[in-house]
Design a protein around this nucleic acid. Structure first.
Lengths: 185, 185
DNA sequence: GTCTATACCGGGATAGAC
DNA sequence: GTCTATCCCGGTATAGAC
């Protein structure tokens, strides 16, 4: 898939990457529920057939999005120093990109054999486990799960419009998620 | 909508209620994402047109499901004595029925003018606020939101197969959600 | 109140031109 | 590599028979 430094000169330069980028927008706007290859194509300004040159099908495109989201999220989390701050980083990342754990670990991706995605999701979990502190692996896993639950929970409420009445900002929600995780441990 | 004690003698007796009941199964099996009137009809053993005698469209059926879920969930929560236990009750209810906050407060229902749903969701929130203890309304709301976030987060992880590797049971997840909320306050 | 049949729409995916 | 054109499928919703 690499362009190898040559200017290939076709319409987009890198439609594959553009499609992945646009997929985030579609996810943010429509949710995983109404995510469609056709919508991504429209929004990218290409025909509905074009994406199939780069991805065999809808799930493979989603898998590529999952891999990118897992990497970017891990990088955001590595810039913090604790699980509590990681929860805040998660809230901000999902609010910004539209792709959270429900996309990264979407059930429909289990059957998609995408080594890149599997590597990136594994690395993300490893990073979280490392942040859990010097405890047993079992205990670390439970802490990570609790953190994910809190972060994902707040994010879902925010995304579902739960806070609309109070004009709550992303940063406020991120702070609440951070505080909640902090008081867990 | 009440049958008024008369035996009406048609195919189902009460197709409206049966459709709502079947909707829970479809939600549990397919998720909100793939929920469809057609699937509910198939599963109920009626034609795809039959539901439209009782509900104007997909969203109205979902709204009726939301109202029932809000009432049943409130009853389950009223049987507990604290927000922490309410979180556990929530995990168990959603695992059993498939309809959680993402259904009860689904964004696509905002536009549906269903007084019964609005009343039931309001009552559910009131019940939760009352459990938050003798604090300011603002503080109570924050506690409720934190509780919902934790409960919904754990439930999502469970539903998405996050715990499959460890053969975790519903009761274990419910206990973790309860513990997490307890350590929040 | 429920049926069969159908119109309509939109997404998934492929064929073949360029 | 992308286009246009097309097929298939399934869900929404309605019309009219029973």
């Amino acid at each position: 898939m690499q362009t190898g430094g040559m200017d290939v000169g076709y319409h987009h330069g890198d439609l594959r990457a553009a499609l992945i980028r646009t997929s985030f927008e579609v996810l943010a706007d429509c949710g995983l529920r109404r995510f469609s290859v056709a919508a991504v194509a429209r929004r990218s300004g290409v025909s509905s057939a074009a994406p199939y040159r780069h991805f065999p099908g809808r799930d493979h495109l989603l898998s590529a999005v999952s891999a990118v989201a897992a990497r970017e999220l891990r990088e955001a989390i590595e810039a913090t120093g604790s699980l509590a701050e990681a929860a805040g980083a998660y809230v901000r990342y999902v609010a910004r990109t539209g792709a959270g754990f429900h996309v990264i670990f979407a059930a429909e991706l289990y059957a998609v054999p995408d080594d890149e995605r599997r590597e990136q999701t594994r690395a993300l979990m490893t990073t979280l486990i490392d942040l859990a502190g010097d405890v047993s692996y079992e205990r670390a896993l439970q802490r990570v799960e609790a953190t994910i639950a809190v972060a994902h929970g707040y994010t879902s409420l925010f995304a579902d419009g739960f806070y609309d009445h109070h004009a709550t900002t992303v940063d406020e929600i991120a702070a609440r998620a951070t505080d909640a995780v902090r008081s867990l441990f």
